[in-house]
Design a protein around this nucleic acid. Structure first.
Length: 561
RNA sequence: GCACUCGUAGCUUAAUAGGAUAAAGCGUCGGCUUGCGGAGCCGAAGACUGUGAGUUCGAUUCUCACCGGGUGCACCA
């Protein structure tokens, strides 16, 4: 539909690059464009007059006439398009036949996208700080997959670096048995180290020495490290299971241990690095230099990320690599991307850093180093608990078996947290507040889930008393029309959200749709009402689109709740 | 100090290839159920979009300055 309008417009104006927008106000049509104003300005014409001329041409276009019920030119020079009811209704049919594929496409066919997300640090508890990367990253994977891209999700675990030196030092100097250390113990050791090192900076030399040993494959260091990694991974695995998150790969940083030398050699060959204060660095124009090798010869995060890019390009030939990593690493990624470009590995647009805002306290950052993090698991548990409480209070859940209620509590609790995160634009910081996190009403996952359950229930009841679907359709009333028009937008919203790396656009849309449905529901009788066949179709389509949307966000929608 | 980033109703947010009357949720106030799920629906009050300039027919969106918060700037990741 959109393409036909664009085609008609470019025939009528001779302009190739036309942007169609979706107006906020329903009175402004399904699509609108400002192209007449842009051209009028260039040609020194009167915008509204020119817009009217374009509309006159468009009205003679037979292809457009088939899909549009009205085209109008409006002050100061907008052109608005209204889709015909017939087209909208046939779209409704498409929803109920395509079901969970409605909104999908093959536009990404043949292209691979790598998404680097979650990436927690080994030996630290899975904190709330990693929620954003994990949830947004997973959703981006879902979205790209839905649009036909081949997606490679990679959890770039922080399992290498001087931080392990600190732990190795702690464990060996205190004569601890690594096998017996839980993740809480490990984090505590890490925090303690940082505290002690504040007073005793030479402790860092010890840590670096131990990391150096690890890189040199010294057996004691290696053994302890392996134990720590194992402990952490099983802990993370548990969290991912609760969250319903999975990866295609979990190549941590250590995976690139034997791949860094190649990158270093290439940089040296191309003379991009130089010695500085005993270390080896890469310099840039306009931004500070990055350390390729430390003064003791050990590698850094920068070195590893370069090796990672090289590996990913060689292994998967992606058209795009998306890093869903916090904004505090902006400079780092600018350095890494700039280097990759200097090396000629990429042209420029392939590497994208989606720098999400921080989850922080009102008065500052949560620092793991200082042990101020909040355990994600605690938050999830609390949320499920609150979900359960609401369910038990509601009488619609009566009759559900206990096991079923538990499942719903999970979907609601986890869904609420995920939705809370996803509904914020990725770039905005989130102030952590226990009360604000557990939103179970208004613009929230439970509201959408509830609406889906409602549609399910209506459809189920309707089936019982055989509907004659062929009843003569009357002209759509306002609420029906609004709903059909909103339903038709879903595929475009998905593309928009993907292109802008913004799952929050899907949240906005789903909430809008659910509100429109609930409004419709409150005003009109569905079962045994007029237009029953159509209204049931609307009900089914709404449920279907809401469910597809939530699935793309990584949120479950229970049949009943 | 330099760089990046954010500043929108009391609170939490939405809206940017510049668009039409700045959109919601929470909270407050007032309504809706002898009918399909009230975790719902309708309505009201509440905003000179941090400040001041500039570009434009048009600015929350672009530019500049200032104020305020956040983050980052060499051997953490």
């Amino acid at each position: 539909m959109k393409n036909q309008i664009l085609f008609g417009l470019s025939k009528a104006t001779g302009e190739k690059h036309i942007y169609l927008e979706t107006p906020e106000r329903e009175g402004h049509g399904d699509y609108s464009t400002n192209i007449a104003m842009i051209i009028a300005k260039k040609e020194d014409l009167k915008p509204i007059k020119y817009a009217r001329e374009v509309v006159a041409k468009l009205l003679k276009d037979n292809d457009l006439a088939k899909i549009v019920s009205k085209i109008e030119a409006v002050e100061p020079g907008f052109i608005n398009f209204f889709l015909s009811e017939k087209v909208l209704l046939s779209n409704l049919k498409a929803i109920t036949s395509e079901k969970d594929r409605y909104g999908s496409s093959q536009e990404g066919k043949g292209e691979t996208v790598v998404v680097d997300y979650s990436s927690p640090n080994i030996a630290k508890r899975f904190g709330i700080g990693h929620l954003r990367s994990t949830i947004i990253g997973q959703s981006l994977c879902n979205l790209y997959g839905f649009l036909g891209y081949k997606v490679v999700g990679d959890n770039h675990l922080g399992d290498w670096g001087t931080q392990f030196g600190t732990l190795l030092y702690q464990i060996t100097s205190k004569n601890l048995n690594a096998q017996e250390l839980s993740i809480d113990d490990l984090e505590e050791l890490y925090v303690k180290f940082n505290k002690e090192a504040d007073e005793n900076p030479e402790l860092w030399d010890e840590a670096r020495k131990w990391f150096r040993k690890l890189e040199e494959d010294e057996s004691e260091a290696r053994k302890i490290w392996e134990t720590i990694v194992k402990t952490s991974k099983s802990e993370f695995g548990r969290i991912y299971k609760i969250l319903g998150v999975s990866f295609d790969h979990e190549h941590g940083e250590s995976f690139y241990e034997d791949k860094m030398q190649e990158a270093i050699d290439e940089i040296r060959k191309k003379k991009l690095s130089k010695k500085s204060r005993e270390a080896e660095i890469v310099e840039f124009e306009g931004i500070p230099p990055a350390i390729l090798l430390k003064s003791d010869g050990a590698t850094t995060y920068f070195t590893r990320d370069l090796a990672t890019i090289k590996y990913r390009l060689g292994e998967w030939s992606p058209g795009k690599i998306i890093y869903e990593v916090g904004s505090e690493q902006k400079l780092h990624f600018r350095q890494v991307f700039a280097t990759a470009k200097l090396l000629g590995w990429i042209k420029g647009e392939e590497l994208v850093h989606i720098a999400h805002g921080l989850i922080r306290f009102k008065d500052g950052k949560m620092s793991t180093r200082k042990g101020q993090g909040i355990k994600l698991e605690e938050v999830l548990e609390e949320s499920i608990k609150r979900g359960r409480k609401v369910i038990n209070k509601s009488d619609t859940s009566r009759g559900l078996p206990k096991k079923e209620i538990e499942k719903v509590a999970n979907a609601v609790g986890i869904g609420a947290i995920k939705y809370f995160d996803l509904s914020h634009h990725y770039s905005s910081d989130i102030i952590f507040d226990w009360e604000k996190l557990f939103v179970l009403e208004g613009n929230s996952a439970p509201y959408l889930q509830y609406t889906i359950a409602r549609t399910n229930s209506i459809l189920q009841k309707a089936k019982k008393d055989l509907v004659e679907n062929n009843k003569e359709k009357q002209k759509l009333n306002n609420e029906e029309l609004l709903l059909v028009r909103t339903l038709a937008r879903f595929p475009e919203v998905i593309i928009d959200a993907t292109k802008n790396y913004s799952p929050n656009l899907i949240c906005n849309y789903l909430f809008d749709l659910a509100q429109k449905y609930n409004n419709f529901y409150n005003q009109h009788r569905i079962i045994e009402g007029e237009n029953e066949g159509l209204r049931l179709e609307l009900t089914e389509s709404t449920g279907c689109v809401l469910k597809n949307g939530l699935t793309l966000l990584g949120i479950e929608s229970p049949e009943k709740m």
